[in-house]
């Protein structure tokens, strides 16, 4: 499975600067970069031109690809060329979104295309926010709010130019209580931090924080959950919460094979195929699921799971 990370952020947030910096690191040069024009929002041509120039100037052996059509087709074509040896054996894919893009359709494309989901794994969503203009952008542009809400990591850029970063961080927390926030000048941040998979502890921490409209909800279960109950629960939650379900992540012990946890992952109403791990990553083998949602009643997920689980167990005799 090839990890895919999405780099998003409003116009001028510094995405290209960051990617140039990342690709300049020899350890990260073996990354395929896709500059994304996917979606209904017209592309900012000036930004794309700047990106092309940057991509051309990257000469550390990385693979660069400017997408002008379908994202999933591009990913699969890239993979085919990788297998054929016509492109370098890249270790990961980094997707730079348009500054005006809501990243959700891109994430949906990654999660719902069968061929892509079978060969690629959504690793992380990194959102860049301009420290100087970010608060205003966040207040005025729904796209910027969506970019913040869906982030696994948030990078404040241009902190050296001033701006009230404390107020901006508070505003970002209101939209996304889970994502860690760091500041960096000229993209000077460890790529390993940026593109690490979002971790469950971070989501668990987020459950303790509440902000207007957005909240983290945690479920913990001692007893393994029947696979059917888990799938029905996730389907029902996605069906009824729709776009209010911003993110869902978890490690779950299934009754059918409790020694091998499954990773559950959903963004809005799109549920990622469950991923089996060989073993529990730590001593804690309880099921832990965290939702980040907007206006989801706090006890609804647990009540719904309990009701579904009772029916499934009853039907199973």
């Amino acid at each position: 499975m090839i990890p895919v990370s999405v780099v998003t952020g409003f116009l001028g947030a510094g995405k290209t600067t960051l990617l140039r910096r990342v690709l300049g690191d020899p350890a990260w040069a073996n990354s395929a970069v896709i500059v994304n024009e996917f979606g209904e929002v017209p592309l900012d041509h000036e930004l794309l031109a700047a990106s092309e120039e940057v991509l051309v100037n990257v000469s550390t052996g990385c693979l660069c690809c400017v997408v002008r059509s379908d994202l999933t087709a591009t990913l699969m074509e890239l993979l085919r060329q990788r297998a054929a040896g016509t492109v370098p054996p890249y270790a990961r894919v980094l997707i730079e979104t348009s500054g005006l893009a809501d990243p959700a359709p891109i994430l949906h494309a990654l999660m719902t295309d069968e061929a892509v989901a079978a060969t690629h794994r959504l690793q992380s969503v990194v959102t860049l926010v301009d420290a100087l203009h970010g608060a205003g952008t966040l207040a005025r542009h729904p796209e910027a709010q969506r970019q913040a809400m869906l982030a696994d990591r948030i990078l404040l850029t241009k902190p050296d130019l001033g701006g009230d970063t404390a107020a901006l961080e508070a505003a970002l927390r209101a939209h996304n209580p889970a994502a860690p926030v760091r500041a960096a000048v000229q993209g000077a941040v460890e790529p390993a931090w940026l593109f690490a998979a979002g971790t469950l502890p971070e989501f668990l921490d987020a459950s303790a924080r509440h902000s207007e409209g957005v909240a983290g909800i945690t479920l913990e279960r001692e007893a393994p959950i029947p696979a059917l109950a888990l799938t029905l629960w996730m389907q029902a939650l996605a069906e009824h919460a729709g776009a209010r379900l911003l993110r869902l992540k978890g490690l779950v012990a299934l009754a059918e094979d409790p020694g091998r946890p499954v990773v559950v992952h959903a963004i809005q109403h799109m549920v990622h195929p469950l991923e089996w791990l060989e073993a529990w990553p730590g001593a804690d083998t309880r099921s832990r699921i965290v939702l980040i949602g907007q206006g989801i009643p706090r006890h609804l997920p647990a009540r719904l799971l309990a009701a579904i689980e009772a029916e499934v167990r009853d039907a199973g005799g």
Binding site: T231, Q235, E239, H240, M270, L304
Partner: peptide
């Protein structure tokens, strides 16, 4: 099922349709 109940009730109170999706666990 309780899943069906929620769907029926949602319709009965005029809340419109949800976004139904199918998910399957591959063992």
């Amino acid at each position: 099922s309780v899943v069906g109940l929620l769907r029926t009730l949602r319709n009965a109170v005029g809340a419109g349709d949800g976004e139904a999706r199918r998910l399957r666990v591959a063992m």
